[in-house]
Nucleic acid binder design. Structure first.
Lengths: 234, 234
DNA sequence: CAGCATCCGCTTTGATACTG
DNA sequence: CAGTATCAAAGCGGATGCTG
């Protein structure tokens, strides 16, 4: 990318990550952790292969990505975010939070991957029972499944199927998103076509404020000013 | 911008604001509030006039900007962020926070405008004496000056010279930035070439934790993980 | 097959000139 | 002041080819 040549933090950031596809590549690496070229391709439907290779080089020379060559145990090189690259997570969260308003319904030709739910999950879900044993929730909404785990007060995510998840969630992407970001309750989501198997408290343990027993929530808003927030629910 | 066609909040956000120059235009409108075409040009050195016009149209049709035509009292139209547009501020703050690491020293051909300091100022400065009378600090580091005001617990910014500021800060951009984000103290900045006139407590009232009496700070970090933070000050 | 590199047509951007 | 018009250069997307 051509530099903006402005001595401004936002402009300098965009000099590095403002190119088309670049922030989505960081999204993939944040979600997946270290991964191979083809993993990135699978998570970035629509990218041209030459662009992917080119951007990886640029990210590498910008110090956001490290390429680890194939060494005997592994047959292919893997790409991994550096600490500097990982520090983009808050910026991606805020961009995603802003963009969530545009996720009402998928465009006819939109693609979807379940693992894209990892970012909103990390942003919106909490482990509200830190002392309970770890639980895992498998989510299937397109592409390979995503596993969301609540353990010891933290919510983590991992791409791939779970061996024996404590619950399974599946359904249309827009409904699963709405459930995770707290725009929809489990019963409403079910009524709309989401399938959920397992203990409801696996999901309940993680759900955002807005939707956990709405009657009792009232003024529990943590973030901003005074919340007279009345959350809707099914 | 061509859509990524991915049902992902980050991708949808970038469909709207991922075009070159777009986020910098939002930066300008956030800092300046409603402003005219030429104000935007002045704050976006390097942009081509056809791009500015084109992006303004796109932002308008995306609902981020409203164009208010010239009406008798005013002779020229003004552009203003909608509420939706203003909601990008947290994303810009995080992007800027990440990009701040790239602001060590200006590139030879980098341009600078004092009012660009408004975003870091809003992010890093606080009014630590909410009950004291309002104070204003005028900052000059290139282009038109910026006024930073601390009043009633809030820090605000305004583009333009102050009538009678309580203090004036001037000097090379990189030093003034370092001062505002808390990488540098006033005495160190002065030694390095910053000029400051007026009561040091005008700046001191607003400065970030990290640099208010650095000897006493030590392990006061607020942000992350377990705060064994011994917050307070003398 | 994984991991690219090359080629080519199209779109976006940049620089400048011009206009109501 | 607030744009439009024009055109060259750069970037992107899609297809395909090469190499271990």
């Amino acid at each position: 990318m051509r530099s903006y040549r402005q001595f401004c933090a936002v402009a300098k950031a965009l000099d590095v990550v403002g190119d088309r596809w670049t922030l989505l590549m960081v999204r993939e690496l944040l979600i997946r952790g270290p991964c191979r070229y083809t993993d990135l391709q699978e998570g970035l439907p629509g990218i041209a292969t030459n662009l992917l290779a080119d951007r990886l080089r640029k990210l590498e020379s910008a110090g956001l990505v490290r390429r680890e060559p194939a060494s005997p145990p592994r047959s292919t090189p893997v790409f991994r975010l550096t600490a500097r690259g990982e520090q983009l997570e808050p910026a991606l969260h805020q961009l995603g939070r802003w963009g969530a308003a545009l996720l009402a319904t998928p465009g006819k030709r939109d693609r979807f991957r379940s693992h894209w739910l990892a970012l909103p999950a990390r942003l919106h879900l909490r482990d509200r029972q830190p002392r309970s044993p770890a639980v895992t929730l498998e989510v299937r909404a397109g592409g390979r499944p995503l596993v969301i785990e609540a353990a010891a007060g933290k919510v983590g995510t991992r791409v791939g199927a779970a061996e024996a998840p404590d619950a399974r969630l599946a359904g249309p992407a827009e409904l699963v998103v709405a459930l995770i970001v707290g725009r929809l309750g489990l019963s409403a989501a079910r009524a709309a076509g989401v399938s959920y198997e397992g203990d409801p408290m696996v999901l309940g343990r993680m759900q955002p404020d807005a939707l956990r027993d709405p009657e009792k929530v009232r003024s529990r808003r943590r973030g901003r000013r005074a919340g007279r927030g009345s959350a809707a629910r099914g």
